[in-house]
């Protein structure tokens, strides 16, 4: 059992509570999407799960062990996280950036082995950026760059991957590409994926487990078809909407109403 779970978790900034007493278990081998209005604490939650944020109360456990009791590197070999604030250093090339994902697997002097090369190659391959290996990251398009960052996370070879708004700044095609890619990883390798997403309908389509948050607490969680109802959308987002079946995937499709189009 390698479940990543939050138990009575409280997180905050400078004395301001963002999340209080939250319980959540990321189902193993599934894709979890966390959605919710801006500032509801979804990114903070993800950062807390990855130990990027100091915990004010409760705990986060991985397979029953408190993650704060684990050496950071050991945690980094089990849980990978792609934060929003990633900086590609000047002049760094794709293969080199991806290779930095090998850090938690390397010893004292950080020497690369041929195993590392193999892992990097596989990561480049499975994210479809192999032909860019020698290109400076700064020259890539937004979609390519995000793939490279995901390749770096894959090179970490973890069972659990957390991503904070991985599709932001991508056009709709690249958003789908990226989510397809994550689904592929989940299906082929059994990787547990958890991500914060903005786009409700994509979240509903790609997630096995949907978590809807509002004001620092979980409003509803479960299978998207069970969770994403008119009432939940209204409660979490304060948004009047109709929920119809997605004609492509059959998952719930949220069609917001707005002020000018009263609807049928």
């Amino acid at each position: 059992m390698t479940n990543l779970r939050a138990e009575g978790l409280s997180l905050g900034y400078d004395g301001l509570k963002v999340i209080e007493g939250l319980d959540l278990t990321l189902p193993d081998g599934k894709i979890t999407a966390v959605v919710g209005p801006n500032a509801c604490g979804k990114s903070t939650l993800l950062r807390g799960l990855a130990r990027l944020h100091p915990i004010d109360g409760g705990r986060v456990t991985l397979g029953g062990t408190d993650i704060t009791a684990m050496p950071r590197k050991e945690l980094a070999r089990k849980v990978a996280m792609l934060p929003q604030s990633s900086i590609a250093p000047d002049g760094v090339r794709v293969a080199e950036l991806v290779a930095r994902g090998r850090y938690p697997h390397q010893g004292w002097f950080g020497r690369h082995s041929s195993d590392d090369d193999a892992v990097v190659a596989t990561a480049l391959e499975s994210t479809g950026v192999a032909e860019l290996a020698d290109r400076p990251v700064a020259e890539l398009s937004g979609g390519q760059r995000q793939r490279v960052w995901i390749a770096m996370v894959l090179a970490q070879q973890t069972d659990i991957v957390l991503l904070d708004e991985p599709t932001t700044f991508l056009d709709v095609r690249h958003q789908l590409d990226l989510l397809d890619l994550l689904t592929e990883l989940n299906r082929d390798r059994g990787t547990t994926v958890a991500m914060v997403l903005h786009e409700l309908n994509l979240a509903a389509r790609y997630a096995d487990h949907l978590v809807v948050m509002s004001a620092g607490r979980i409003v509803a969680e479960g299978a998207p078809s069970a969770v994403l109802t008119q009432e939940v959308v209204d409660e979490a987002f304060g948004l009047r909407a109709q929920v119809v079946p997605d004609p492509v995937a059959g998952t719930p499709l949220v069609v917001p109403v707005g002020r000018f189009h009263a609807g049928a």
Partner: peptide, 9 residues
């Protein structure tokens, strides 16, 4: 790569 990335690694 940034503080967050470094911590995550």
């Amino acid at each position: 790569l940034g503080d967050d990335n470094a911590r995550a690694l």
